[in-house]
């Protein structure tokens, strides 16, 4: 028997599908139709062409031009630039930050470390893996906070005082924007 949560989730999915269908096909076609009607009605074109003739001509010119522009747009123009201007082009996400600083680690990475590094480093890897598993099993609710690798990097002389402090802050940071005050 499906519970209320599942029903709501299903209904929301249907709503999303409906919005995509509406936005990408019906709204798009209707807006084209509206533009064509306005152009025909408010210019002297209606003296020379009937509405169906004008509509045919409009789509005949518009369609190949739009397809061509769309092609270049996808490859080189606005679509490409939109992607590149996204700040996450160079900003690490919360979980990438945790991964880069060693607060979590995937099992594959651990296998590599097992072969390569010292006992202390292996212990840190195992701790990161445990944090990673807790994070995954909690479905993202658990915030991994291991700073074992920061400690080790500091001990090895790879981080100075200032960077060690920054490293700990990143490793133990909260995931939400409103909690950024705690990070600073």
């Amino acid at each position: 028997m499906p519970n209320a949560k599942m029903i709501i989730r299903k209904l929301l999915r249907i709503y999303v599908y409906m919005r995509f269908g509406m936005t990408n096909y019906f709204t798009f076609l209707i807006s084209l139709f509206n533009t064509a009607s306005l152009v025909w009605y408010f210019t002297s074109l209606r003296k020379y062409l009937s509405f169906p003739e004008f509509l045919g001509l409009f789509f005949l010119i518009y369609t190949p031009l739009a397809v061509l522009l769309g092609y270049y747009d996808t490859k080189k123009l606005v679509s490409k630039s939109t992607y590149e201007t996204n700040p996450y082009w160079r900003r690490p996400t919360f979980i990438e930050r945790k991964r880069f600083v060693g607060a979590i680690m995937t099992p594959v990475a651990l296998l590599h470390r097992k072969l390569e590094c010292s006992e202390e480093c292996k212990k840190c890897s195992e701790e990161s893996l445990r944090e990673h598993m807790k994070y995954v099993l909690s479905d993202g609710k658990y915030n991994p906070r291991s700073h074992c690798f920061c400690d080790l990097a500091y001990k090895l002389g790879l981080l100075d005082e200032e960077h060690y402090r920054k490293c700990i802050k990143v490793a133990t940071s909260e995931p939400y924007l409103s909690d950024l005050g705690k990070l600073r």
Partner: peptide, 20 residues
């Protein structure tokens, strides 16, 4: 080792500054 130090600190700076 100095190069590893430079790499480690550059990564930490990037991660820290990108937070805020």
């Amino acid at each position: 080792k100095e190069c590893y130090k430079e790499a480690a600190q550059a990564v930490v700076d990037w991660l820290y500054e990108s937070s805020f």
